[in-house]
Amino acid sequence: RKWEEIAERLREEFNINPEEAREAVEKAGGNEEEARRIVKKRL
């Protein structure tokens, strides 16, 4: 699934746990840019 690939990239890029990465992607509706913004806000 594409969402899992996005979550994996976010996890590696921001050094967050898989659960946090998945939550961000879900919140963003699968949009990678939006997920990235969500993760950055949390850091």
Rank of each mutant, 00 (worst) to 15 (best):
A35Q: 00
R36L: 05
E33G: 09
R9W: 03
E19G: 08
K41N: 11
K27F: 07
R42S: 14
R37W: 03
N31I: 11
A24W: 02
E23C: 03
L43D: 07
E13V: 04
E33K: 08
A7L: 08
K27I: 12
E23H: 11
R11L: 15
A24F: 05
N17L: 13
R22S: 09
E26M: 10
R9T: 07
E34H: 09
I6S: 03
G30R: 02
A24L: 07
E34I: 12
A7D: 02
E13S: 04
R9E: 05
G29S: 12
R37H: 10
I38N: 07
E32T: 05
E19A: 11
G29H: 14
K2T: 11
K40L: 08
E33A: 12
R22F: 12
N17G: 15
R42P: 05
E5Q: 07
K41Q: 15
N31Q: 08
R37L: 11
R42H: 15
A7C: 10
L10Q: 00
E19C: 06
R1K: 15
G29T: 07
V25D: 00
E19R: 08
V39T: 06
V25W: 03
E33D: 13
A24M: 06
K41D: 14
R42A: 15
E12W: 08
R37Y: 02
E19D: 13
A28E: 01
A7R: 04
A28N: 02
N15A: 10
R42C: 04
E5Y: 03
V39H: 01
E19V: 11
V39G: 01
E23A: 12
A21S: 07
G30Q: 02
R36Y: 02
N17Y: 09
K2M: 15
L43R: 07
N31R: 07
A7Y: 06
E23I: 12
R36G: 04
E13Y: 05
A21P: 00
R42F: 09
E8M: 13
E4M: 06
R37D: 12
I6L: 13
N31F: 07
K2W: 13
K41I: 13
E32R: 05
L43S: 07
E34D: 09
K41C: 07
R9I: 08
I16T: 05
W3E: 06
N31L: 08
N15V: 05
E33Q: 12
A7W: 07
R11S: 14
R22N: 09
G30L: 03
E8G: 09
L10M: 05
L43G: 07
N31W: 07
K41E: 15
A24D: 03
E4N: 07
K41G: 11
W3L: 10
G30D: 02
P18F: 15
E12H: 10
E23S: 13
F14W: 03
E12T: 10
A7H: 03
E34S: 07
R1Q: 15
E23P: 01
K41H: 13
A35C: 02
V25M: 06
R22L: 15
E8Q: 15
L10F: 02
W3N: 08
L43N: 07
E34T: 09
E13W: 04
K40S: 11
E8A: 13
K2L: 14
R37P: 01
I6A: 05
N31A: 06
E26R: 14
E23G: 08
A21C: 04
R11K: 12
K40Y: 04
I16C: 04
N17A: 15
E19Y: 06
R9Y: 03
V25H: 00
K27A: 13
F14K: 02
I6C: 04
K40V: 14
N15F: 09
